[in-house]
Lab assay of single mutants.
Amino acid sequence: VSVELPAPSSWKKLFYPNKVGSVKKTEVVFVAPTGEEISNRKQLEQYLKSHPGNPAIAEFDWTTSG
């Protein structure tokens, strides 16, 4: 189950709350306009370098507050 949070234009930000008793931590995933899922800052940096014209990296908020 995921919750969609505010994201930069043409992107989606999905929040996957951890299940009770789960060892997996809460996860935030950005979905690029191409449909590619980005789950960490390093991936995001690589994606933005190879896909010019996207929002600046500073516009991506990895917190769950939206």
Rank of each mutant, 00 (worst) to 15 (best):
I38V: 06
K49D: 13
S65P: 15
P8C: 07
K42I: 12
E37W: 15
V1W: 08
L5G: 07
L44E: 00
V28Q: 01
H51K: 03
I57V: 08
V31H: 04
P55C: 03
V28Y: 03
V20C: 13
F60D: 01
D61W: 03
I38F: 07
K42R: 12
K49S: 11
G66H: 11
S9M: 10
K13F: 02
A56H: 12
N18P: 10
T34F: 02
F15E: 08
I57K: 05
P52Y: 03
S65T: 13
E45W: 10
R41P: 15
P55L: 05
V1I: 13
S22V: 11
G66L: 11
F30L: 03
E27Y: 15
A56N: 14
A7W: 05
P52D: 06
V31C: 07
Y47M: 00
E4M: 10
T64L: 12
T63I: 05
I57N: 04
N18W: 10
E4S: 11
K49P: 00
V29L: 07
A56R: 08
T64E: 07
P8N: 05
P6E: 08
L48Q: 00
L5A: 06
E45I: 10
F60R: 01
V29G: 02
Y16P: 03
A56D: 15
K13T: 03
Q43M: 10
L48D: 00
N54W: 04
T26C: 15
K19I: 12
K42G: 10
E4R: 08
N18H: 12
S39G: 09
K42A: 13
V28F: 05
T64H: 11
T64R: 08
L48F: 02
Y47S: 00
P33M: 02
A32H: 01
K25H: 14
K13Y: 02
K24E: 14
V28H: 01
V23H: 15
L44R: 00
G53K: 05
W11H: 04
K42M: 14
N18Q: 12
K24P: 15
P8Q: 04
W11C: 06
S2R: 13
A7T: 04
K49V: 10
P6D: 08
G35N: 03
L14E: 03
S50D: 14
L44T: 00
K24H: 15
L5I: 05
P17S: 11
L44M: 06
P17E: 11
N40E: 07
D61S: 07
G35M: 03
F30T: 00
D61P: 02
A58M: 09
V29T: 08
T34V: 00
P55I: 06
E59F: 06
A56T: 12
E37K: 13
E59M: 08
F30I: 01
P6Y: 07
K25S: 12
Q43E: 14
I38Q: 00
W62R: 01
Y47V: 00
V20P: 13
S10A: 13
Q43P: 01
V3S: 07
F30G: 00
T63C: 09
P55H: 06
Q46S: 10
N54H: 07
S2V: 15
N40S: 12
N54C: 05
Q43V: 08
E45D: 08
R41W: 09
E27I: 14
P55V: 06
N54L: 03
P6V: 07
A7F: 06
G66Q: 11
E36P: 00
Y47R: 00
K12N: 05
W62L: 02
S2M: 12
V3D: 06
A7R: 03
I57E: 08
D61N: 07
K13H: 01
K42S: 12
F60V: 01
Q43S: 08
L48I: 06
N40T: 11
L14V: 09
E27V: 15
P55N: 04
S22T: 12
F30N: 00
A7H: 04
G35T: 01
I38E: 00
V31P: 01
P33D: 02
Y47T: 00
S39T: 14
F15Y: 14
P52N: 04
G35Q: 02
